[in-house]
Design a protein around this nucleic acid. Structure first.
Lengths: 158, 158
DNA sequence: AATGAAAGTGTTTATCC
DNA sequence: GGATAAACACTTTCATT
């Protein structure tokens, strides 16, 4: 069975209660030992190791990431910039976004604004030079993040 | 020394090369054993354990998360919705967003659009009922994500 | 799919530099 | 901050159900 079919099977059947519990636990702390996960859900360590292996193989689990606090690195400001490239500038704009390390996320979307980019900045003074640079190739519309009522969270696993 | 001062000290001094390497490794695979991290950077396991403990205590490392592929759970579509609450509806709108499990991220921003929310959907048919619900309390502007030229990545740690 | 047991690793703590 | 060593804990493999 190829990966696509396995993934499809998961979509229709969904995850069982144990897999959902494992994902919930790993979403809190992805470094929890398999042995501790096993105790939490009442199964043996080898069976949990095998379940994790399958979740990874299926593509449900894409990996395990460290979460860094941007503030602790001096990035005190987040900006969401909508970007509408000028005629003929689409590829140059995308290249600029991809190559800017302060862009931590960028989606290409439908509608008049072609890109939505999330910037991390150390101060408000950094914003203007960044926008000036883009202005050569695109129109922009910038919003500063004041708070985040919903921080990155998982979609329902059920 | 309180946490805020420690964090401040980090901001000015930055992270040393070993801490940067550890973060880079854990960003690829947050479940790597301390012993393997130690071998990668050429230090002993206890010294790496101590460094991780300090990075966590400083607030640089906020935690370790499992990354789930929404597609594998049937969420085939991502929408970015900008939301401008009607007069007097701000709190009700925010409550609606926070309590909607399909909203996986939401920022409150400056400008005319008060909120920017990221929705995961199983199909395009799910979009209209969601927007109809919000329409009672806010004006919305919706973009469908076609591709993501920059997937979530860390800011520069240097 | 899951288990228990055993062998191989990894983690933690204490002590020293 | 970092190293080593010993005690303890975890992971992996395999035979079994």
């Amino acid at each position: 069975m190829v990966a696509a079919e396995k993934s499809l099977r998961n979509k229709s059947e969904g995850l069982d209660a144990v897999d959902q519990a494992l994902i919930a636990l790993l979403s809190e702390n992805a470094r929890l030992p398999t042995a501790e996960l096993a105790r939490s859900v009442g199964l043996s360590a080898p069976s949990i190791a095998e379940r994790l292996r399958r979740l990874e193989e299926n593509g449900v689990v894409k990996g395990y990431r460290v979460e860094i606090d941007p503030k602790a690195l001096g990035y005190t400001l987040t900006a969401i910039v909508r970007i509408r490239p000028l005629p003929g500038q689409l590829h140059a704009v995308e290249k600029l976004l991809v190559e800017s390390p302060e862009v931590v996320e960028c989606d290409k979307v439908t509608g008049e604004d072609c890109y939505v980019a999330r910037y991390l900045l150390r101060s408000i003074e950094e914003l203007d030079p960044i926008l000036e640079r883009i202005a050569q190739r695109a129109q922009t519309s910038t919003s500063i993040v004041k708070t985040s009522p919903v921080k990155r969270r998982l979609p329902p696993t059920g």
